[in-house]
Design a protein around this nucleic acid. Sequence first.
DNA 1: ATGTAC
Length: 477
Amino acid sequence: MELRQIDDYRWEIPQTGAMRVPGIIYADAAMMAALQKEEACRQVANVATLPGIVKASLAMPDIHWGYGFPIGGVAAFDMDEGVISPGGVGYDINCGVRLAVTKLFADEVGPRIADLADALYAGVPCGVGSTGGIRLTVAEEKKAISQGASWAVKRGLGDADDIDRTEDCGHMAEADPEAVSDNALERGRRQLGTLGSGNHFIEVGEVVEVFDPAVAARFGLAEGRITLMLHSGSRGLGHQVCDDYLAVMAKEARKSNIELVDRQLACAPVNASAGRRYFSALACAANFAWINRQVMLHLCREVFMRVFAKGPADLGMRMVYDVCHNIAKKERHEVDGRVRDLCVHRKGATRAFAPGHPDLCAAYRDVGQPVLVPGDMATGSYVLAGCDGAMAETFGSACHGAGRVLSRTAAKKAARGRELFSEMAGRGVALRCQGRTTAAEEMPEAYKDVNSVVEVVHRAGIAKKVAKIRPLAVVKG
DNA sequence: ATGTAC
């Protein structure tokens, strides 16, 4: 594929053939050299062929191959002429990351880390098909997915501050349970408060580096503080919503005479009935995921209080933020001097609104949105803050993680003969894992170096480094 | 990601 280097961190796929706009990939030279051979670049170009796409098909430095759209991709579509696509969101609707910080310091937690890891592993249901979280009737489930995260708080599973520090207050208003199939509802009914599998995790960490003390202080982060990070999504419910609407969209694309260069780009006009209905279902799944992470935060808080024999005030566990990184949202952005209503798809990309954005909670409005970027299970995670560059270039978006370099099968092969649990212990990480193969699939070598991914968005002026967190304990589904 | 293939 032909690529034109714009500067040290930006590469253009020129607009050719059926592409309506160019592609822009954020990466350093080493990443780009590896990427150039990848199918993911072709996927960036494919997305650029979809009707109503605005400005460019974008990709963050953690880009890798995905279903139709690349993971790490950002694409915005005009609300009148554009489309919405389940492949542009991903199977795990509102998969996202939540970060909380405690009053505990590393010296207090270090000696108890094995107990804490065991207790978290026991305290949160995990693995494929995990249930045993909250069990709901379908009627109550419909109420929950209409309300979002505040539903959990009403039931005593968190407090108002948790909601305030959740993207969009953990609620998409367009949610309509009538757009969600009985099958999807049934799959979700017993899964609130469950971790799931794959790259979903619970991570206890220690803040080891602060890059921007003023912003870090605002986020409640200081060197030595113990953190809790959760990564999970909408479980079986979101997966079923995606499946259901992929089938619908395949037909809709034909009906609307949308030419698809890849069937996996199935989509429909965002402002017509099928597109609206998918958006209503997606909003339900997004709300489900926020409740799910809220319930898990509550479970983890209780585990911490038990293990350290502390009350809520002494533990002082409070939310930093909760972000979605698989989502489509209706947002207003300035494009070439004109304010436009857009449907922004972020698939493996995090919202990164800059200081001053009206959608940010009051506590962070003047410093920018926290952007949570987990790395692999040993390297660490970053907290960034959204910058003006994101508003100008990426529809207010940044990277979401390290990004895979090895497929799951390749990772399993590479892990043969390795003792990952003792290796991780040797690196100071207490690893607890359900699936026998999960540790192998999630081994550090399966991911890009999160340090260099973050460096790209930092230097490109999209999101700036605030703090780095080192993992002490990791629970994988 | 996922009742990892209807």
